[in-house]
Structures are given as C-alpha cells and as structure tokens.
Simulated assay, not measured.
Amino acid sequence: MSSKALVPEAKQGLNTFKNEVAREIGVPFSDYNGDLSSRQCGSVGGEMVKRMVEQYESSL
C-alpha cells in the first residue's frame, strides 16, 4: 500500500479540518503531537469521519 495522496491539493484542507475538530473537542494539536495518547488522536480522526459521513448523507 502506498502512502501517496490521491488528491495532494486536499492536504491543507484536511489539516485545517483536523485542527478545527481537535480544537472543538479539546485535544491540543500542534506541530508535534508525540505527547498525545492514541485515544486523543483517534477521537479526532473518528470525529472527522463522523462529520464527513454526515455531510455526505445530507447531500444525498
């Protein structure tokens, strides 16, 4: 499996979205996130997916 982005232009938008979600749920994201637990990082990713699915479903 390759780690190459399918849409490189989306990287900045996803980073902005990630930081917005992290801020809203109280996870202190920064340039270095090595101090965060797996649970904290997973909660940000899970919330991002939840919001993306909700947005997709509402567009149907």
Rank of each mutant, 00 (worst) to 15 (best):
G34L: 11
R23A: 08
A10R: 00
D35P: 04
D35G: 10
E20A: 08
E47K: 10
V7Q: 06
R51P: 01
N19Q: 15
C41H: 12
G34D: 05
S37W: 03
E47C: 00
L6H: 06
I25A: 06
R23T: 11
A5D: 01
R51E: 01
S30T: 03
E54G: 03
L14C: 09
I25T: 02
S43K: 15
K18I: 12
S30K: 14
S37V: 03
C41W: 02
G26Q: 04
V21Y: 00
L6T: 04
S38Y: 10
Q55M: 11
V44C: 04
S43N: 13
K50V: 01
Q55P: 02
Q40P: 08
E47I: 03
V21W: 03
S3T: 08
E54P: 00
A5Q: 04
S58P: 01
Q40G: 08
L36N: 06
N19T: 12
N15R: 11
V7K: 13
F29C: 13
R51D: 01
P28V: 08
P28F: 11
E24W: 00
K4H: 05
S30Y: 07
Q40F: 06
V49W: 07
P28L: 07
N15K: 13
F29P: 10
V49I: 12
S38I: 12
A22Y: 11
